[in-house]
Amino acid sequence: MTGKGFLRMLFGVFKRFVMTYVEDFRKGKKRYYTKEGIESRRKADVQGIFTIQYPEEKLPVPEEFRFLPFLVYDEGPNGEKDLRCTSCGICAKVCPPQCISIVRTNDPVTGKPIPQPKEFYIDVDICMNCGLCAEYCPFDAIKMDHDYEIASYSRQNNIYDIERLAKPVSYYASIRPTNNAAEELARQEKEALKAAAKKPAAAESAG
């Protein structure tokens, strides 16, 4: 019959529309504005449509999510910021669009480089959020941020400097708990190995 296929399509659309609200009636308000609610709505076996009510509720981003890079600093006992970055320049070398530029600190007396960046700029108008800098940083000093709400009325300040880029390690641990734990573990192991290597040497020299 002509028109049967067409009606079938309309029926499909109507069914989808109804199914969107069936769950709402069943579970009520619980489905909205909570993390569990969002998870229950975005599952693969959900019938009907899922809409995230941004900005009241935000879609939780996975741990690996990357937006712009930031620099990690360790907090000292007196609240001083100790940047992990040693200005080795690997991130600037690996960056595909070359948006990172680093000024290395030189010792004023000897003129030799000090492992500490003097300036660190990232032009976010060039950055392609690829995450290669974070992936290849040997000191876990540069990481990819989760903060995407950075729209602005001007792009004058879109070259981020060290002040804007630096974020504490506690923040890093809060957005990427698994990665941070794994890195901490690796670092401890490394230090243990180093200590173990030192001990026999010390013992030998003593003996």
Binding site: K93, S101, I102, R104, D123
Partner: peptide, 13 residues
Amino acid sequence: PFKSRWPEGITGR
């Protein structure tokens, strides 16, 4: 990599 990015990083656009 461009040499101007490190160790004497350029500033500005």
